[in-house]
Design a protein around this nucleic acid. Structure first.
Lengths: 154, 154
DNA sequence: CAGGATCCGTTTCGATACTG
DNA sequence: CAGTATCGAAACGGATCCTG
């Protein structure tokens, strides 16, 4: 997991803008478009977040049994990473001391709109083997939808 | 670039839902949350898109000179991939036959909202070394902002 | 049995040199 | 200018092992 350590150490992961002399650019001054490489650059990070936010997964076991079959070592590293950057927090189950529950922080919950907009894009252009009605509702009531999911964790 | 070939071949890249028996899930039926792994799982794909959509980059040279210093072989593979999946299209410059211009397709333009929501999230939580005023305008006039960028390519 | 660490072969990345 | 070719470094991921 050296890559994450490096990303965290360096401010470069926040992709600063280059000079903006491009004619086609909509910006007058330096382009304020920062993308978090640490987050979007990893196949599993956003995936774990989706499992938590939209599927209600909480424990290591649930994540590992997800259809994508993430390897346990990879999963462990991602949970650790997401916790370290403040997107998730963990707590030991009261009922079973072996079980650790992961839940999104406020910062993590604020990613819901990002995932939602991505989901809507995917639905428009890629295979959708999922209920059309719910996607439609999600599209028409985006804010409410986001609020509802948020409410489940607060 | 075998990974992309495989992703394209397999419908698995559209992360189908597992059974949804989780108590905390907001879904009644299979969760319609598909994320395009091929796109978000790669550090460079979204980055190239950002350079095109928000910085107005067009040519191989411009991308390669971007601050993140993407290696030329990686850049070539990503441009090829993004073109193959229909997010970009290329055309040879009329002025210089050596130069190839890449521009977003309609499908690519539809990703603007995704990137915008990500940018707003990043601005809220990560270092912002960019004009606050423009981010604020972008936040308050999101739709107009998106439309303006779109208009530059249509 | 849950969470996760270790080992290790395989795949992918990415810096540089090089080519049409 | 727009890419390939090469090759060492890094990450993946499956199996297995460890610990409470």
């Amino acid at each position: 997991m050296d890559i994450f350590a490096n990303l965290m150490r360096s401010p470069e992961n926040l992709i600063p803008m280059t000079t903006n002399s491009q004619a086609n650019s909509p910006w007058r001054s330096p382009c304020p478009v920062n993308i978090s490489l640490e987050l979007v650059g990893d196949k599993w990070a956003l995936l774990v977040l989706r499992d938590i936010l939209f599927k209600g997964f909480k424990s290591f076991k649930e994540f590992s049994q997800s259809k994508e079959r993430i390897a346990t070592n990879i999963l462990a590293s991602r949970l650790k990473f997401l916790t370290e950057v403040g997107l998730l927090e963990s707590e030991v189950s009261e009922k079973d001391a072996r079980v650790i529950f992961y839940k999104p922080t406020s910062k993590g919950l604020d990613l819901i709109p990002v995932i939602v907009s991505l989901v809507l894009w995917v639905d428009k252009y890629e295979k959708h083997s999922v209920p059309k009605a719910e996607i439609e509702w999600m599209k028409k009531n985006t804010k409410k939808f986001i609020a509802e999911i948020r409410a489940k964790f607060e």
